[in-house]
Design a protein around this nucleic acid. Structure first.
Lengths: 144, 144
DNA sequence: TTGATGTCGATGCGATTGCATCTATATTGA
DNA sequence: TCAATATAGATGCAATCGCATCGACATCAA
């Protein structure tokens, strides 16, 4: 049975939550200031770019991004309308489709990384001593 | 100048983000399954309960919760309509108001904690060895 | 086969968020 | 004092989210 959390657990949860929200806000603000789309667009573009030629099915992207199905459907809508992603026919499953990043999509991802990368460095990297980032990554991994 | 983040920093950021989102989703799902309002309501109620008799100004709550001003305004709206929070006149500043938790609000916070507490234990506590929670809290604090 | 059930993705609708801006009051400085 | 500026909080409107559900195809069991 699951009982009440101890104080250390509560502090960890509150800290995790605040840290992530502050970092996200900082990063999103920098993207917006540079007239770039939100983080979720970057994440989608990056997953699709990593997937390469064969692309990804929407449900795969959904799992990779931890998105709700309906939100992913609409995100893909917007990105397709923006010319960043191509919806291709899926040979194996006629219910589905295959998503591929376009040239424009690749270009936008690069422009976003030019802002996103330094933002991560500023918001996370500069605040952690060497080795602490690894610790944080390891602890986070245990929660997934 | 801020340059590119190193790999450890990127891993820390991605891990932090995924861990927080998964944990949040798990906790919110449990609240919803118990027919309870979302986490933000709990957070607001808890801040107001901690503040005690003298209550809090909306802008103080805004800072405590890391909310946008307009979102806080509307959250308070909904919670007031639900009878959980009282808007009181603010003697010092006639532009503003003082927010106080109601009896109903206190009661709801308790009922929420009965779900929220175990949820934290399950999603965070059970996945971290003793001491790791403290480490995570300490690392998170460096990011704030 | 074929009927029952499961999975993929889209969508109508109401709720919430983000942006810009507004009103009212407070503060500051000439 | 009083005009200029700043701060507290609300709100109209468009974009996005959450929920429920749908249509289309796939899979599985008899």
């Amino acid at each position: 049975m699951t009982c009440k959390p101890d104080d250390a657990t509560v502090s960890a949860w509150i800290g995790l939550s605040r840290a992530q929200r502050l970092a996200t806000a900082g990063i999103e603000a920098r993207l917006k200031a540079a007239d770039l789309p939100p983080l979720s667009w970057y994440d989608a573009l990056w997953e699709l770019e990593k997937a390469g030629e064969c692309g990804l099915r929407p449900f795969e992207l959904e799992k990779a991004l931890l998105f709700e199905q309906y939100n992913l459907s609409r995100l893909v809508d917007r990105m397709t309308r923006a010319g960043l992603v191509d919806r291709c026919v899926c040979p194996d499953d006629r219910r589905g489709q295959t998503l591929k990043i376009s040239g424009e999509g690749r270009a936008l991802r690069q422009r976003m990384w030019a802002v996103y990368g330094p933002a991560i460095a500023e918001v996370i990297g500069e605040r952690l001593a060497p080795g602490e980032a690894d610790q944080l990554a390891a602890l986070s991994a245990k929660l997934c």
